[in-house]
């Protein structure tokens, strides 16, 4: 079971309670909710906030691919996964991504949660523009996407 969404912060807020509600089931004995949040320092620069941009359709496609791959690569068939990422301006300490997973056992839940965030970092077309205390801002460099 999979839920994915890009939350446009100009229209709505990201809600942690939606993640908990989605993965709740007595079928599963282990649940993990991961929050990515904006931290105040990056490479010795004082950060005030981050603007996220995303290619929504490609991002959703990448989330679905990552979910489906988990079947083969991690051999985790029975699972519930909730992934939401924001676009727009995010202030310090606020949430940019929620990954909630539920599996029958804890080792699967830890593996799956870690696998999803690492793959998103590598493959999902999401960009960050950091805003600094001195009023400057810059897009973070990132890694080229694989074209096969």
């Amino acid at each position: 079971m999979l839920h994915t969404k890009i939350i446009d912060l100009s229209k709505e807020k990201i809600k942690p309670e939606n993640a908990e509600e989605f993965i709740a089931s007595s079928k599963f004995g282990a649940s993990i909710v991961f929050y990515g949040t904006v931290r105040e320092n990056n490479e010795n620069k004082k950060v005030n906030g981050i603007t996220y941009d995303s290619h929504d359709q490609l991002v959703i496609k990448s989330f679905e691919e990552i979910y489906n791959e988990a079947d083969k690569k991690l051999n985790i068939k029975d699972k519930s996964v909730f992934i939401e990422h924001v676009k727009g301006y995010v202030g310090l300490g606020e949430i940019s991504i929620i990954i909630a997973v539920a599996c029958p056992h804890r080792s699967e839940a830890y593996d799956l949660s870690r696998y999803i965030i690492e793959e998103i970092k590598k493959r999902s077309p999401i960009w960050k523009k950091e805003h600094y205390e001195n009023k400057e801002s810059e897009w973070l460099k990132g890694n080229p996407i694989q074209t096969n």
Binding site: Y52, L58, K121, W127, G142, I145
Partner: peptide
């Protein structure tokens, strides 16, 4: 890929190096 042929009017997106999440 770079060899992809553009044969009609269309929208194409540029995907700079990524670093989100």
């Amino acid at each position: 890929s770079d060899n992809y042929k553009i044969t009609k009017d269309q929208k194409i997106s540029i995907i700079p190096p990524i670093g989100g999440g």
